[in-house]
């Protein structure tokens, strides 16, 4: 079929549609684009691979045609992307017979691909389930060998040293076991095992990264955020990904704490923003030690604003060990070492 002028230009040339008539579905209004975009955002389905190439779409009368790829097929219309990147929604009953057949094929393929995806996800989950026995046997073997170590070891340090290679070896086995199903529950249990048992190096990094990647929303990772927080980049990723209120709250607080520890004035604004977010949204969330974040964030906020290098120290009004009242500010004009100490 010969490529004709796009409908848009055609419209201008022949003045179609006439203004007194209802606007044809070939013309495109801002609200249609908006609606289409909204629809795609909410329910968008990726086009099957075979449909990615541009083809010529023609209307039922054969008068108008346009080169476009299909973006999305709805119940009674199709969203097209034109060569210039603009989108256009066209009612199916306005299309030529051939286009309607194409749309029908497209729908069939799309449904099949979606079903395949669902099936793959279910299978992945199932495969994860199938791994449970194998997981248990690896763990049993670990426990058995750990027990032997405890029996044969002479002191705690020696047992610890001998245990580490065992943890690394077991971590390797476990990670390999769930490699193909990184999003399954079994995989999550593996990552947590690896982290909890103090694996180091590649194994620990792999497990932490996978937890952040796939389980940022899983409350099960709460006790391990402290470990994740050792790697600032991972903590930042977790903080931005998490939607679970507890995970998000704890990660936000930890990120603020981590960033504030450098006492870097350039980071102060960001730290204050994070802390205010904790105070306004996550005050009632508790950390892994069951302490609510609100008061902790308030204290840290005070510290950042008043106890950073370069700030005037807050006054202390109290009594000495003999019960005599005095103030820290009594010592203005002197260099002061303020030493929080205890005899223990």
């Amino acid at each position: 079929m010969t490529q004709e002028l796009t409908p848009k230009i055609e419209l201008h040339r022949v003045g179609w549609p006439p203004r007194h008539r209802p606007v044809s579905r070939w013309s495109i209004s801002r609200w249609q684009i908006t609606l289409a975009t909204l629809f795609v955002i909410c329910c968008g389905v990726t086009a099957p691979s075979w449909s990615q190439e541009a083809r010529t779409w023609t209307n039922a009368s054969g008068k108008f045609s346009v080169e476009a790829t299909i973006k999305e097929l709805k119940r009674d219309s199709v969203v097209l992307i034109l060569a210039d990147g603009t989108e256009r929604t066209v009612a199916l009953d306005q299309l030529s017979e051939a286009d309607r057949r194409y749309a029908a094929d497209y729908r069939k393929t799309m449904l099949a691909e979606n079903a395949a995806k669902k099936k793959a996800a279910a299978e992945s989950k199932q495969r994860g389930e199938d791994l449970k026995d194998e997981l248990q046997s690896i763990l049993d073997s670990f426990n058995q060998r750990e027990e032997q170590l405890k029996q044969s070891g002479t002191d705690a340090a020696q047992i610890r040293n001998a245990r580490q290679p065992l943890v690394q070896e077991t971590s390797q086995q476990l990670l390999k076991l769930v490699e193909a199903v990184p999003q399954s529950e079994v995989a999550r249990d593996v990552y947590i095992w690896v982290v909890r048992n103090g694996a180091q190096g590649t194994e620990a990094a792999t497990a932490i990264e996978a937890l952040v990647q796939h389980f940022a929303d899983s409350p099960e990772i709460l006790p391990f955020i402290g470990l994740i927080a050792r790697d600032l980049a991972m903590l930042e990723k977790l903080q931005s990904k998490a939607k679970d209120k507890a995970v998000k709250g704890v990660a936000t607080f930890m990120l603020a704490r981590q960033l504030s520890s450098a006492d870097n004035p350039a980071l102060e604004e960001r730290v204050l923003k994070l802390l205010n977010e904790v105070i306004s949204k996550y005050a009632d969330v508790s950390d892994s030690a069951r302490r609510p974040l609100g008061p902790q964030a308030e204290r840290l906020l005070f510290a950042v604003e008043n106890l950073s290098i370069g700030k005037v120290a807050p006054d202390i009004i109290g009594s000495d060990l003999d019960g005599v009242a005095f103030k820290l500010s009594d010592y203005r004009g002197k260099v002061v070492v303020l030493d929080f100490w205890g005899d223990w």
């Binding site: 006492d263 204290r299 840290l300 005070f302 510290a303 106890l307 950073s308 290098i309 370069g310 700030k311 005037v312 120290a313 807050p314 202390i316 109290g318 820290l328 500010s329 203005r332 004009g333 002197k334 260099v335 002061v336 070492v337 303020l338 030493d339 929080f340 100490w341 205890g342």
Partner: peptide, 26 residues
């Protein structure tokens, strides 16, 4: 109360202030 206000979580914690009461070292 004093260690709470100063957000002290480890002991010893040391602040060094200059003659103007400004925190200069931690």
């Amino acid at each position: 109360p004093i260690s709470a206000q100063w957000n002290v979580t480890g002991w010893p914690t040391i602040y060094i202030l200059d003659e103007h009461g400004v925190i200069r070292y931690k």
